[in-house]
Amino acid sequence: MEQKLDHLMTHFSDVMEEVRGELREMKKLQDLEKRLKNVEEMLEEMKKEKEKKVAFSASLLASGEGYTGPMKPVPTPLIYKKVFSNYGNGYNPDTGVFTAPIKGVYFFRFYAHCQGGTTMAVSLYKNDERQCSVFSWKPAANGNATNGTVLTLEKGDRIYTKLWDETWVFDDTAGYTSFSGFLLFPL
């Protein structure tokens, strides 16, 4: 009987060691599953980051040369027709308005040009609120001005430029009057 008991104890110890080994293997598999899930989540995040590319650049006239303005009151934003790039499709060349496709921090810059004897003034707006401006009062020769700013935008915020009342801008095929912006980073 004692011999049978020793044999059962040895067999029980062997079975327990096998169970422990299988549990270690199961833990390794669970760890591998967790790591695989983390890698899949990272790949999904990288895919989303790739989709968050937003940048545009456009100049005022699609072709030719000419003035825009003067007007009083100025009815609409400046509409930049010659689109150089529009990643993320945030800029609308029919309205002149950039609409943020995602929440984030963006950089915008705009250039304006006038010829001698005319006054040029343009402002950048966020949701109908003036952010910054450029101005040149009747230069003897050509006048140029540029400005830029970093803005935090919610998805759907609208950015555009607009002339001041009774002012002008000039553009030609060289693209002197232009508007650009890009996403610095999403939030």
Rank of each mutant, 00 (worst) to 15 (best):
L5Q: 12
L5A: 13
M9S: 09
M9D: 08
T10E: 14
H11Y: 11
F12I: 06
S13Y: 10
D14N: 14
M16I: 07
E17A: 15
K27N: 11
D31K: 08
L32S: 08
K34S: 05
K34C: 00
L36F: 09
L36P: 01
K37M: 15
N38Q: 08
E40L: 08
E41L: 08
E44R: 12
E45C: 03
K47W: 08
E49M: 03
K50P: 03
K50I: 10
K53C: 00
K53H: 00
K53N: 00
S57I: 01
A58S: 02
S59E: 01
A62R: 07
G64R: 04
G66T: 07
Y67A: 08
M71E: 12
K72L: 02
P73Y: 02
I79Q: 08
Y80F: 14
V83Y: 00
F84K: 00
F84E: 02
S85R: 11
S85D: 01
N86I: 06
G88S: 07
N89G: 05
Y91F: 11
Y91N: 05
Y91L: 04
P93N: 04
P93G: 01
D94E: 07
V97R: 09
T99G: 00
A100Q: 02
P101F: 06
P101D: 07
I102Y: 11
K103P: 06
V105C: 13
F107C: 04
F108V: 00
R109V: 09
Q115N: 06
G117L: 11
G117S: 11
G117I: 12
T118H: 15
A121C: 04
Y125V: 06
K126A: 11
R130W: 01
R130E: 11
V134P: 07
W137D: 10
P139Y: 07
N142R: 10
G143V: 12
N144A: 02
A145E: 03
T146S: 15
G148P: 08
T149V: 15
T149Y: 07
T152K: 14
L153I: 12
R158N: 11
I159N: 10
I159Y: 09
Y160A: 13
Y160D: 11
K162M: 15
K162Q: 15
W164P: 05
E166R: 02
W168R: 11
W168L: 05
W168D: 04
F170H: 09
T173L: 07
A174T: 14
S178N: 15
F179L: 10
F185H: 13
F185K: 10
P186R: 09
P186I: 02
